[in-house]
Design a binder for these strands. Structure first.
Length: 108
DNA sequence: CTATTGACTACCG
DNA sequence: TCGGTAGCCAATA
């Protein structure tokens, strides 16, 4: 890897630490990295996380909405993966998101 | 170098 | 309660 922004790698690192059956938001990761206003960059980092062991399907927006499901292979793959972990999803929104929410800053 | 875009979030009416 | 707008920052054209 010739050059990779520390920010992206950090995002991948945090995302990888998300416990099974848990989810977090882009903003939470950004805030943990000290870039509260750069939540978009976290999402961008997820796009660059292809080929890595980063469970990007566990990262959603602050509303628990699967905004990035279109970036996965299928149209419902992301939801399938989440449901496979015991996370209930209706449409594009995670059920009981607040309870499943995993805050990196709080856990680390 | 400037303009556009995007897996976001916070604020405002 | 809810929809629209603005602010953010990096990548891409």
């Amino acid at each position: 890897m010739p050059n990779s922004t520390h920010f992206f790698d950090k995002c991948h690192e945090v995302a990888r630490q998300i416990p099974y059956g848990r989810v977090t938001s882009y903003g939470a990761i950004a805030r943990y990295l000290g870039a509260t206003k750069s939540a978009r960059m976290v999402g961008y980092a997820m796009t660059a996380s292809h080929g890595k062991d980063v469970p990007a399907h566990r990262v959603v927006n602050r509303k628990g909405l699967l905004t990035g499901k279109h970036h996965f292979e299928g149209t419902n793959l992301m939801q399938q993966l989440l449901e496979s972990e015991g996370i209930k999803v209706e449409g594009n929104q995670i059920i009981d998101f607040e309870s499943l929410f995993w805050d990196p800053a709080k856990a680390l």
